[in-house]
Design a binder for these strands. Structure first.
Lengths: 341, 341
DNA sequence: CCACCTGTTTACAACGTTGGAACAACGTTG
DNA sequence: CAACGTTGTTCCAACGTTGTAAACAGGTGG
């Protein structure tokens, strides 16, 4: 094993506790002993055994981040930010992937009780709001996504309904009339799809335009591509499509371009997430850009509050900002500026 | 705090060790006590405190994965696989981001000694091979990337020289003569860039073609775009470019298309990594596809061997397979099949 | 010279777990 | 029936750390 406090104490000729005091910067240690101990410390290359410290203190300094899949760019980018912000609190981050499976989501939610992590940031897909609300475990929890029902956890998200309405309005404002929504999901699945659909509907209704939707199971490029193909085969194909995330939009763009249609001249496309791919696709992708750094900071800070503070506070719901990023996929070359939201 | 063995023992009317025996499936426990204990176990909802177990056993069941940045798709995809394979060994994965900074890489390499993780899978960029070799810590370590000098760690990688040669040969085989290499890096930085450059040179030399290179600092889309712009401004612009990774290639593609040139008619583009973006870009991206699932499995399995077995074995270097994925960015529409390598 | 501070150091216990030794109960064997 | 093995259970110690309380020095003030 490694070097323990005992080894250092022995070498320095002091008690174990004194070494511990030096390590932890306790005030009342004489200069003489301090230097003596510090010398022994560095001579042996002491490194605290955090397993032991954790056992003693009941804190691990590790949090878990549970999300559907790490290789979806949105989650990769968000994870990056969360790890960065967590590091500011000297936290390490364990990443768990649920693949959107109910069983895995339950496992993760339950596994948190093994005292390996101090808290959990969780982006649920399959698990029901009621099941979340019924959670008995008191490990700190912050959810990514808007609050559906009441529950014991804090929530962090953008205003999905408003964002969806904004981007749909943008499409309508371009003069498009057959605006489709791509990314609708079975409503039994909780999550953001129904919210984005609601925003789309509000905008369409406000202009008296007919709705048109395409369902998908998962938010991947492949599904965006096939759903777009279905829309193209429909009796009245759309002249604009709001895809519920950027991956769907990029898949849809592939299909549109592959059949020889032009974006945005024939079909305008917009997404949501502002993943980096969309800034380099041809054409570049108009999208809603959630402030991911802010989301990350909010999530970590809320978790910090839960972990440090009393857990009896009422759960909070905080909203992150977003911006509309107008790019070539809706307005063509010579892009206009980006307007904040 | 949570429920401890003591609580369960008290309820079941047995000793703490007996409960521990039941929990750990120890053989010699009478059926009567076993059921009694199991009932108490589930009644209280016991969950082992892994901090304590770790302290006792000296194993945490957690490994660390250190890589430059999680939001580079290649690393996101690889991380996904590594987390999945690690889960088969009941390991959790902590992800650390180094941003390619030397200081961060040292921190990570050093931080592993705090007994929080059983081992480390590390994708270094900045740190020198000599420094790695001089490591004294005996925590198990597996490196992602080819071995440069000798060192105490196992290595996992594809054969970068051969892969680079293969893809360059593919470009030459299309009849291109002004084939450029995009992604050259200052050789002080260790890593794969020099290997890929070597493979490119071998192929060009074999055909007596003149070399042409563009340097970048980091392997991002933005740098691919600007490096491509530089190549276009040169006296004899290339008719094909081998980009050292897919992100660079996608950035380069953006630049080529944005100035009104066609891919692949005017300039053929190829990358390396086979990230998902390249399968949906327009045109789709020809690339080298490392077998990421295999890479992940090799890395985790090697780490497992190190952790379980004696660490005195000589370090091993294993090579993962790769395939050449020929897509539209080099051969245009009506894609040919993909040939294995 | 004693009581009483102040500052520094130490002994002890505890966090929850598991390996090993010890022990008890039981049946088997010579 | 004594000696012995087998099976089931308990007791004790230890992993390395830190909080608490107590011990110890060295002054000060009465």
């Amino acid at each position: 094993m490694g070097v323990s406090l005992r080894d250092v104490a022995q070498l320095a000729g002091v008690s174990v506790k004194t070494v511990s005091n030096v390590v932890n910067g306790y005030a009342h240690v004489s200069a003489a002993t301090r230097t003596k101990v510090e010398q022994a410390l560095s001579q042996l290359g002491y490194q605290p055994n955090l397993s032991a410290r954790n056992l003693r203190l009941g804190r691990t300094g590790v949090i878990a981040l549970a999300l559907p899949e790490l290789d979806a760019p949105y989650f990769a980018e968000l994870s990056r930010s969360i790890i960065k912000v967590a590091a500011e609190h000297r936290w390490l981050v364990i990443i768990e992937q649920t693949d959107g499976s109910l069983a895995r989501e339950r496992e993760v939610l339950d596994g948190v009780r093994d005292h390996r992590v101090d808290g959990l940031i969780f982006s649920p897909i399959a698990i029901g709001a009621d099941e979340l609300a019924a959670r008995t475990d008191d490990t700190s929890l912050v959810l990514l996504g808007e609050r559906i029902y009441d529950g014991p956890a804090d929530h962090v998200a953008i205003d999905n309904v408003r964002a969806a309405r904004d981007i749909t309005e943008h499409l309508i404002g371009l003069g498009r009339r057959r605006v489709a929504a791509l990314g609708v999901q079975d409503s039994s699945v909780s999550g953001t799809a129904p919210l984005r659909l609601a925003g789309y509907r509000e905008a369409m209704a406000a202009h008296g335009l007919p709705e048109s939707t395409a369902e998908v199971e998962r938010y991947h490029r492949a599904e965006g591509a096939s759903a777009m193909a279905r829309l193209l085969r429909s009796p009245s194909p759309p002249d604009a499509v709001f895809c519920f995330n950027d991956l769907l939009a990029l898949g849809a763009m592939r299909t549109v371009l592959a059949v020889g249609l032009r974006v945005p001249e024939d079909i305008a496309l917009a997404g949501l997430d502002d993943i980096e791919d969309g800034r380099y696709s041809t054409p570049t992708l108009t999208t809603v850009a959630p402030d991911k750094a802010q989301l990350a900071r909010m999530a970590v800070d809320l978790l910090k509050l839960r972990i440090d503070g009393r857990s009896d506070r009422p759960p909070r719901e905080v909203r992150a900002d977003y911006r509309l990023m107008v790019r070539e996929s809706t307005v063509g070359r010579a892009p206009t500026g980006e307007r904040p939201s």
